[in-house]
C-alpha cells in the first residue's frame, strides 16, 4: 500500500513550479496536506509557529536552491537554528534545475539534506524517497 504523508512543504520562488509539484503530489496521493511557499522567509515563519491540526508539521520539505533574497543554502542555515521539534519530520530534499557540481557537493555535506534531485518532481522519485525514508521505519 502506498504510504501517504501527513504534510509536505514545497519551497520554490517560481509559482508555476509549486503549482505543478502540488498537482503531482496530489494526483499521486502522496500527502494529506501540501503547503507551498514562494519565499524561504515565509516558510521559516511557518516552521517557527506552533503545530496543530490546521498548522501541521511537515514531514518532508522540497527546497529550491536558487531563490531570490534567501536562497536554499541560507534557508538551511536558519533551519539549523530551529528547535529540533520545529524542523521537518524527516527529510529535506534539495531541488535544482542544473546539476551544478558545487551544489551537489554542498548538498552531500549538509546534514539536513537527504537527497538532491533535478526538477521537476515525478511520481517515480517521490515513491522512491517515501519508501526509502518511511516504509523502512515500519
Amino acid at each position: 500500500m502506498k504510504q501517504t504523508l501527513n504534510c509536505i512543504m514545497l519551497i520554490d520562488d517560481d509559482h508555476p513550479t509549486n503549482v505543478y509539484h502540488r498537482i503531482v503530489l496530489e494526483e499521486g496521493g502522496f500527502a494529506g496536506h501540501v503547503i507551498t511557499y514562494q519565499s524561504a522567509e515565509a516558510a521559516l515563519e511557518y516552521l517557527k509557529g506552533t503545530y496543530n491540526e490546521e498548522h501541521p508539521r511537515p514531514s518532508l520539505i522540497f527546497l529550491d536552491i536558487n531563490m531570490p533574497r534567501v536562497n536554499g543554502w541560507e534557508f538551511l542555515e536558519q533551519y539549523e537554528k530551529l528547535l529540533p521539534e520545529q524542523r521537518a519530520g524527516n527529510v529535506v530534499v534539495m531541488l535544482s534545475t542544473s546539476a551544478n557540481p558545487n551544489d551537489l557537493k554542498r548538498a552531500a555535506e549538509n546534514p539536513f539534506v537527504m537527497e538532491y534531485h533535478d526538477k521537476p518532481l515525478n511520481e517515480e522519485f517521490l515513491s522512491e524517497i517515501i519508501s526509502k525514508y518511511w516504509e523502512s521505519e515500519e
Binding site: 517560481d14 536558487n66 534545475t97 542544473s98 551544478n100 526538477k119
Partner: peptide, 13 residues
C-alpha cells in the same frame, strides 16, 4: 542553464 531550463520545464510540465 538553470534559468533557461526553469521556464522550459514549466512549459513541458
Amino acid at each position: 542553464s538553470h534559468d533557461l531550463q526553469e521556464p522550459l520545464r514549466t512549459i513541458s510540465s
